[in-house]
Design a protein around this nucleic acid. Structure first.
Lengths: 247, 247
DNA sequence: CCTGTAATTTGATCCGGATCAAGAATTGAC
DNA sequence: GTCAATTCTTGATCCGGATCAAATTACAGG
């Protein structure tokens, strides 16, 4: 991925301006009335930049802050008993991370940076203080969790229903849409994750994922050069993915 | 299922006593300090009894209350474009329903009773009032949603990883554990859902589910008489399911 | 630029679960 | 109780994706 949410990187722990953030409409403050947004903003800290492969959260560690990715992308996964990775999904800028930690106070998954990654954090004690006096934020937190739950249910349902090419098509259509919402070209992007990561996410083998890319390429739906993807026939992909079609 | 949470059914809209409810430790009030539990209790209404097959919530309708099943069981599902059911899971007494509705203010799935079902409800406007002044309830709501999210992630990961017999084994092990927590015999129960429902939940065909039951029966792990199940070798099931083993 | 390593593509074979097709058992209505 | 409708089991065949095995391409480091 070639995403950077703002041009200029300020110092490590500088206070962040949500007001000017390109991600504002996707992030928490975008759904809050102005006074609440300001109050929230004062509690937001910026996390240090992470190099690819580094952990943003580790499963089992105390959930001490609400985290939102600011630039770059990440992989959410759990380690199985056999030591393999169970890939839950991929995180793009403006998306929160580790929400399942509310269940126990400890994060339930690993989240690793796939590219240089920066993020924002709201310490839990500050969040609790804010929740006491900001009704909009209370609603927003419930909305955020509800949305994460809805997405997890949707993804699970799709796994149970769709065949290999359908899953890959849907994966690409979904990525495409998320890029679009962030203002990036939806039909021309670079995958930050490996074929193996995609395969583990979709419950397939990396060979099958590769073959799906192959057929889409052969049929003229996609241009594939390693991790650089151009979507030539979004309609065909969406149809195969079984998306209600936004035409 | 042969579960009834309390012996006596009071009138349709009577005020419910959480204090004496058998499900208290599994439900919201069980995790709250006594004063908050009392405050919550005053907002709880009892829903009318539903006959098998009736809808507890419909997808797309306004989420006007937080719902918890009190007795009986239910099926959570979505209707696909082709008109088939995508079964997300099954609801047992003490479990909340329709939490994904927080995403948009409208329920995201259908929930239908599988047996005669009774439930409790907290109207949304009362919930919001309570959230304003009960910090424990705020934490509890986040916990509840986090837990639902964690479970959805887990279920999705299992679908991606496990083969047919493993999925059925895990389904049974999971049911068994949930029965146990509710004080019901964990190794002797009646399934309230059809093989087809189980199959759609696990991303299999009903024939494959039936064959899995068949092999478990043949191997002496299970006694199967239609929907009556006796688990003879919980250890074997758990091992096949890949459960960390609670021995 | 070259080189070694990792990632990806492509090919051949095999197997688990889907599909098609009967039967058998269970349940509910009368 | 009997009967009809539904649900469940069991069998036979087929196919999509897993697995095993190279060959090719991309990429980081010198």
């Amino acid at each position: 991925m070639n995403i950077r949410s703002e041009a200029i990187e300020t110092g490590a722990h500088a206070c962040v301006s949500c007001r000017n953030c390109a991600l504002k409409p996707l992030c928490l403050p975008g759904h809050l009335p102005a006074p609440e947004a300001r109050a929230l903003e004062s509690a937001v800290e910026r996390g240090r930049q992470l190099a690819p492969g580094m952990a943003l959260v580790r499963a089992g560690t105390t959930m001490d802050a609400l985290l939102v990715v600011r630039s770059g992308s990440a992989k959410r996964f759990s380690l199985t008993l056999e030591g393999t990775e169970q890939v839950h999904g991929f995180v793009l800028p403006g998306e929160a991370v580790g929400l399942e930690g509310f269940a126990t106070g400890r994060y339930g998954c690993e989240v690793n940076a796939l590219e240089p990654l920066s993020y924002c954090r709201v310490p839990m004690h500050k969040l609790e203080q804010l929740l006491e006096r900001l009704p909009g934020l209370r609603r927003e937190m419930l909305r955020l969790l509800g949305q994460a739950l809805e997405e997890a249910l949707r993804l699970r349902g799709e796994l149970a229903e769709t065949d290999a090419r359908g899953r890959v098509a849907r994966f690409l259509a979904d990525l495409s849409e998320r890029f679009a919402r962030r203002g990036f070209p939806p039909y021309d992007f670079r995958l930050s994750m490996s074929r193996a990561d995609i395969a583990r996410h979709l419950g397939l083998t990396l060979e099958t994922v590769s073959r799906a890319f192959g057929t889409f390429k052969r049929d003229g739906w996609l241009r594939v050069r390693a991790r650089d993807i151009s979507v030539l026939r979004p309609d065909a992909l969406a149809a195969l993915a079984g998306v209600p079609n936004c035409a």
